[in-house]
Design a protein around this nucleic acid. Structure first.
Lengths: 248, 248
DNA sequence: TTGCGACCTTGATCCAGATCAAGGCATAGA
DNA sequence: TCTATGCCTTGATCTGGATCAAGGTCGCAA
């Protein structure tokens, strides 16, 4: 079990207007005035890769937006089996108004910067500013959709389909997020973490990565930089309905 | 695939004050005045067991609270594999404000009565009355918690643990809801539907029901009336953390 | 430069749950 | 009463992914 190293407090003064997640985070719909309010109550915190950001059941001191890096939500059974129940990337929200605690652990998988708000004043703000409440609701419903999509994956997809879905999802989020050169993007997770996300073992993940590589669907420059070489093929391998998504 | 029999429109005049789900549904926090508003826009609709209430992707005409009966949310892969992603019991909410469509099918598994609100006026109401918006947010977050709990089940639990968890959950919800005689309660779902809920096959479900029965943990009077005979044993068999729940 | 630790790959074997198959048991309709 | 139909149970067999095992690779720190 991971030791909870103390977070390194670090005050950075980024103006909200220049914030990289300004238009996707909980503050997305805020006008200048509301932004001013939020700006006044925010603090930045950094966590090192591997740090536990929040423990399950621990009283929640703050809520936050993830600004840079990646974090995971995970649940654990009595005997140690774990299942990741969410992957947080920049602009995702941590915590929930009206709840004292959360039902899972939140762990930084890379170095992470959070934009934090103390829970109490934030909750007050939610009550007062409809734009924040609405955006929060949208984010919650998006997460619910994502969770249900993942239930289908966990319950019914084969290992190969799970891996293909995972890569396709990362590719989709990566292109929206940081547009790295040439379709290549960073695999934030280790094989073991990917296995936890997909309800598999790390050996099975490794084997299917190798298989997809051999088939020319994906390529690796090193173990954490993956490239999609055959997107249509990959999408076919996900097992999803071809007409499942929106026209984009 | 199930044929969509036309719903039977049926106007029942139940006063909100006497509604069986008054204190748990979306209207739970409403005061008399707000209730009056809701009351003015509601209509009841009935569906027969097996009817599809809503199709995935179909434009959403109404949102609703489930008053009596049970319904399922389910997603389907291209080749027909299906996974249930939610089970709706009385007081649960169907639909979402701000979305035109939903990502899964909603099917009545028993005869069902819904308390329906046309989507547009309901959305207007959500914007105006904080009590409804708050309750809606709570319901969404509860569903999110439930979805994540289910992800753990689907990804990491054994068949036996899945069955035990399912029965334990039903027992918990049943005792709150309708307090049938002697710890016995109705199994709303067929073996096949249970299998879809748990990410198993119907044969595996049947085998483990038989095993738990042989071990004296549960009993059946007929195939749809189940009784928990050894709750501690059953809880042990779920694989969950003993200290997982709240003190109740 | 060497040794260690963290992570990844690949092979061999095992087994829980899927699949295939054959009835059993209610209820409903003729 | 007979027969069809829709579940459900149980047995036999198969198999995808888990488990067990043995290196391989890379980066870092002594």
């Amino acid at each position: 079990m991971q030791i909870n190293k103390m977070p390194i407090p670090e005050l950075t003064s980024v103006r909200c207007q220049e914030c990289p997640i300004r238009h996707r985070a909980v503050c997305a719909k805020c006008d200048e005035e509301e932004l001013e309010l939020l700006s006044g109550m925010k603090t930045y915190r950094s966590f090192k890769a591997g740090d536990v950001i929040l423990w399950r059941g621990e009283p929640l001191q703050f809520v936050a937006s993830l600004v840079t890096g990646a974090a995971t939500l995970s649940k654990t059974l009595e005997d140690g089996r774990t299942q990741m129940v969410g992957l947080l990337l920049p602009s995702d929200f941590i915590g929930r108004p009206g709840r004292q605690e959360i039902e899972f652990d939140v762990t930084a998988t890379t170095d992470v910067t959070l934009c934090c708000f103390d829970r109490k004043p934030f909750e007050k703000l939610v009550e007062d500013t409809p734009h924040v409440a609405q955006r929060l609701m949208e984010l919650a419903l998006d997460e619910l959709d994502a969770a249900r999509e993942w239930m289908l994956l966990l319950g019914r997809k084969t290992a190969r389909e799970k891996i293909a879905t995972f890569i396709e999802m990362l590719a989709r989020r990566a292109t929206v997020q940081d547009q790295e050169a040439g379709g290549q993007f960073i695999l934030y997770l280790t094989r073991d973490q990917i296995a936890n996300y997909l309800g598999l073992t790390l050996e099975t993940v490794s084997r299917h990565f190798s298989a997809l590589k051999k088939e020319g669907m994906i390529g690796f420059s090193d173990r954490h930089h993956i490239e999609v070489l055959d997107l249509p093929g990959l999408q076919l391998a996900t097992g999803d309905d071809a007409d499942g998504g929106l026209v984009s």
